[in-house]
Simulated assay, not measured.
Amino acid sequence: MTFFVRTASRADLEAISALLTETWHDTYDAIYGSQKVSEITASWHSITALEPRLTRPQSEFIVADDGVRLGGMAFAASSDAEKKLFMLHQLYVRPDCQGQGVGTDLLEEIVQAFPGAERLRLEVEEANGKAVGFYRAHGFVAVGQTQNCGAAESGIPAAIYERPLVA
């Protein structure tokens, strides 16, 4: 199937939530355990949690759609007043769609959405080897650590990666 990247809509929220739940369980059950992953996805990936992203200023909320289902999603937003640093909050590809270019297409669209930005930053669980490899292959380098990935006081450690966006 061919996936097309487009802006996420309110009608997509249920499918995005399901995609995130499936992908998180596939990726993180072995790291955090199924129960903790279920708790996180119920909080972070609920329709209620996702909905404000549809109207957040200086952000891009996109999906990869093949006309039948969503193969992936991404969300990024400005992290500073000058709009020079953007944070890639999410980039997830359904497990059976990984390795087909969906993640690359989503990442390229995110980069194009922020002309004038100088850097794109993200946080990634270091035990998620597939994601670390993906980001490194796309020009990201480790620049630091956080003890609270994804949300304040989450207690989830992660590496911070950045990619310069200007030559």
Rank of each mutant, 00 (worst) to 15 (best):
R53M: 11
F75N: 06
I47L: 05
P57H: 14
E39P: 02
I40K: 00
I47Y: 00
R53S: 08
G67Y: 04
E60V: 12
R56Y: 07
A77F: 12
P52T: 06
S38T: 07
Q58D: 15
L70F: 10
I62Y: 01
E51V: 00
T48A: 14
S78C: 13
T48N: 11
T41Q: 05
T41C: 06
V68N: 14
G71T: 05
A76Q: 11
T41P: 01
S46N: 03
R53H: 12
R56G: 08
S46P: 02
I40P: 00
E82L: 11
L54Y: 04
E82W: 10
S78G: 15
K36V: 15
L50R: 02
T41N: 05
I47W: 01
V68I: 15
E51Y: 00
H45W: 06
F75K: 07
S59R: 10
S38V: 03
A42T: 03
E51M: 03
E51S: 05
F61Q: 09
R53C: 07
S38G: 07
R69Q: 15
M73Q: 08
V37S: 04
E60P: 03
T48I: 11
S43N: 14
D80Q: 11
H45L: 06
G67T: 09
Q58A: 14
R69A: 15
A49T: 09
T55S: 14
A64N: 07
E39A: 12
D65S: 08
E51N: 03
S38N: 08
D65L: 04
S59P: 09
S78P: 07
D80R: 13
A81L: 14
A42V: 00
V37P: 02
V63S: 05
K36R: 15
L50T: 03
A77L: 10
P57F: 12
S46H: 01
